[in-house]
Design a protein around this nucleic acid. Sequence first.
RNA 1: GCGCCCGUAGCUCAGACGGAUAGAGCAUCGGCCUUCUAAGCCGAGGGUCGCAGGUUCGAUUCCUGCCGGGCGCGCCA
Length: 586
Amino acid sequence: MKQEIEQLLSAAVTRLTGTLLPTPPAAGTIVVERTRDSANGDFASNVAMRLAKGAGLPPRTLAQAIVDALPASPQVLRCEVAGAGFINFYLAGDAQAQVVRQVHELGDAFGRNASGAERKVIVEFVSSNPTGPLHVGHGRHGAFGASVANLLAANGWLVHREYYINDAGRQMDILAASIWLRYLEACGERFTFPANGYKGDYIRDIAANLLQRDGDTLQRPEGELFGNLPPDEPEGGDKDEYIDALIVRARSLIGEAGFRTVLDLGLAAILADIEQDLGEFGVTFDRWYSERSLADNGAIDRALHKLAQHDHVYEKDGALWFRATAFGDDKDRVVVRDNGVKTYFASDIAYHLDKRERGFDLLLDILGSDHHGYVARVRAGLDAMGEPGSSLEALLVQFVTLYRGGEKAQMSTRSGEFITLRELRNEVGNDACRFFYVMRGNDQHLDFDLELAKSRSNDNPVYYIQYAHARVASVLRQLESRGLAFDGAQGLDNLALLTTSHEAAVLTALDRYPEIIRLAADNRAPHALVHYLRELANSFHTYYNAEQFIVDDAALRNARLALVLAVRQVIRNGLTLLGVSAPDTM
RNA sequence: GCGCCCGUAGCUCAGACGGAUAGAGCAUCGGCCUUCUAAGCCGAGGGUCGCAGGUUCGAUUCCUGCCGGGCGCGCCA
């Protein structure tokens, strides 16, 4: 409806161009918005105020001229000039009701549009280090990323969802060493576990699987392992030095192949756990992309070569530096350390180059807010390699603070460690989780109250929306039990009977849905959809309390049922984009 | 010190492109179940939109400077 009014205005302004208006208006000048107060009509435009100065006319005079030039439309009852020069549109009585017909015709597709124009976008999110289970912060990334990806797809983007596996580097070595040490413990060796090792119970589980699969083939006496090592932190040493020395020792004792066996087993186990966890959460990926593969297939060398070709690298202090400052970054960045090891940043730019080479127009990275410094670097890298840095868009997700009735509760009461996503899901349920995670904008800190998310009361917004959906289903059950059936044709033919103020409110809410889908995708703002769904549910609940749907008058009954079925459809469409279920009973 | 984000009702937050009387939930207070699910509805109170300037016909929104909070500024990943 909003679009149609914009078209009317555009036609009127075009008609005046050359006479009252010296030049055609710039794109984006003709804007129509919904009025906040129905006393000002249903829609309003400020176009006359924006064009008045250029035309050398008082805003109200120009506004009246535009109104006079508007083409006639069956949708618009009348329009008038108001205030400082607003043009207010009053819709014809049955114009709004046509949205019900649209919803019935389009079904699941209602609200989708083609604004993305089949551009290719890669959404990279979660990408947690595969060194342990996901915790509550990763859950927000998963829920947010999945919802943004769904919204983009609903707007006609070709969406690819990807998880970048940080399976190279020192953290992986520490993981492997930790597993091997727990394996030795399981073999009966006794020693003090390193301060910097991974201490979670899942490490013991993986070690137990290793023992079961490979027997004691990797066992070595602890004396050989710990002899002549630097002191660990509790002994006054440096925990990083200690664990690095331990890793070197482990490699020499069980060989590179043996070490790799342990590492791969651990990596596979943890990734399987993460994939299952996210899968149960309704978060899935088209590809799990291995960082290690970038080194193995030469992609990093190719990226570095590309930088060197364009003369954007130099040597200093034995290391190879990328001249990032030439591309707007704060400082130059090391890509190859003086010990010959390539930095994490080197694989990052290689990865992003690879994304471009795979043909993605938009690279959407969903990152923790603590990674904001990283964006300028990677953009600089892309520019230096001849790819537009502007194709990278980073969405920074702020931290999650868990509360349990008002008290901070970051730690699990059972294990004393960070609460995992799985624990959270088990406690509050997937629906409430997905919903609470996207209730706030990504750049807003999120207070996640466990008690509120669990409460099955009117405090809980997710149930409020689901309840509206279930109520419609309940109405249909009631209809059937009275021996009646919904006559869709009759309902859609009698939409003009939907005249109460409550029906008008529901119709307006339904009509807004396509606008919200567009807005939420353009702004990468799933929370806009959350707020909308609450308002739609509110208009429905109010209607439900005010009017009976199952009335004796068949024409009115079917018109009302057509309306509430449209509400059910739109709620279902919206919740689906958020990864939340739409139950028929509660 | 530099950079990014945030500051709106007692609390948690919406307010895209500058527009008409700044909204919602929770909390507080008062009403509504012999009628399709009360996980619901209706009503009331509650605000110098952090502060100070600037641009504009018009600023919560844009710009500048302060104040307060979070995060980041490695040859870590």
